[in-house]
Computed example of a mutant assay.
Amino acid sequence: MTAVDVFTEHRGLLFSIAYEITGSVADSEDVLQDSFMRWAGTDRAAVDNPRAYAAQIVTRQALNSLRSARRRREEYVGPWLPEPVLTVPDASGAIELAESVSLAMLLVLETLSPLERAVFVMREVFGFDHVQIAETVDRREDTVRQIAHRAREHVRARRRRFTPAGEEANRVVVEFLAAATTGNVDTLLQLLAPDVVYIADGGGKATAARVPVIGAARVARLFGGLVRHPLPDMRIEAVPVGSMPGLLVYSGEKLDLVLQFEIDNDLITGVYVVRNPDKLAHLGAHPGAAGAI
């Protein structure tokens, strides 16, 4: 098996590891390129488990990438959100579909240190043993066990409940979309949890709220603006994004923003909007995973 064969066969896993550690599609692609070059230069005949070894390389590179990214994010304009990834089945096998890829989980992982995040992803998401993780992050096995326990408890305490994309969640989003595009504020209020949170990421490159908007009334008024100020030639597609129900909103042929909805007990508890064009570039050629609405 050649170096290319290994990365091709396990690309879904390797990309998922990089994405869950970095939260960035662009950084994940860079990580995979750098990791491939390192993998191609190894003595592969001495590697017993190519999948695990390649995963270790990717984890190390992703950890380095995240440490650099954390410094850059300190100067980011407005709230920072992970780059959206479509979680519809496709031929590319870009990511392994799982609740763990959800934006809700990625936001919790943002509260971990880079090392804690890498250990958590390897152990809790992809099931690597403590010995493999210790070799990857260059720590003693007992230290890794402590880090894994601490990270697991941290995530458990902060993880929010949500309904993954599916018939139930999609129904709520369809009702929400109908109300938002017709200016039906009463229906919007019925669909929004009283403490709903709206977070938008424009990165200083697109118009977006610079601080979170909290509360059903405020979020409903915000979406009422869709009727008053619609995008030119607006077109909306319903499609799962990061295992959560989502909407792709186009202005003509340009993807203008991506929305992800956190839903619990048939109420929308979180709305996450990515409008930074740099974070949408990889979705620009999306052919339409769902029918236009």
Rank of each mutant, 00 (worst) to 15 (best):
R210V: 09
A200K: 08
P194L: 00
T207S: 15
A206F: 01
A179D: 06
E175P: 08
D186G: 00
V211R: 14
T182Y: 08
F176V: 11
I199P: 02
G215V: 02
T181R: 04
V197W: 05
A178Y: 12
A216Q: 08
G215Y: 05
A180Y: 10
T182N: 15
G204D: 04
T207A: 13
G183T: 04
R218F: 15
N184M: 01
L192A: 06
V211I: 10
D195Q: 05
T187C: 04
Y198N: 02
L192S: 01
R218T: 13
G202V: 14
I199T: 12
Y198T: 01
T187Q: 05
L191K: 02
L192Q: 01
A178P: 12
A217G: 06
V213D: 05
A209P: 07
L192K: 01
A216I: 11
P212I: 14
A179P: 03
A179H: 05
A220E: 06
V213I: 15
A208N: 06
L177A: 09
V219R: 03
F176D: 09
A178I: 10
P194C: 00
G202D: 04
A193Q: 14
A209C: 05
A208K: 07
G203C: 15
L177P: 07
A178S: 15
G203K: 07
G202A: 14
V185R: 03
A216F: 05
P194N: 06
V211Q: 14
R221M: 08
L191Q: 00
L191M: 09
A206K: 12
A193F: 12
T187L: 09
L177T: 15
L189P: 02
V185E: 06
P194A: 05
Q190S: 06
T187P: 03
I214T: 13
V219F: 02
A200I: 12
L191W: 00
I199F: 01
P212H: 14
R210S: 13
V185P: 08
D186Y: 01
A193P: 15
D186M: 00
A200Y: 11
I199E: 11
F176H: 12
A193W: 08
V185Y: 03
N184E: 03
A178M: 15
A200E: 07
V213F: 10
A208F: 00
A208I: 08
G202F: 09
F176T: 07
T181E: 05
A209M: 14
V213H: 09
A220F: 10
V213A: 10
V185A: 02
N184L: 11
A217I: 05
T187N: 05
E175K: 11
A209R: 11
A209V: 10
A216L: 09
A220W: 07
P194F: 02
A178D: 13
A220M: 08
D195E: 11
N184W: 06
R210N: 10
D201H: 08
A193T: 04
D201C: 13
A209Y: 07
A217Y: 04
D201M: 14
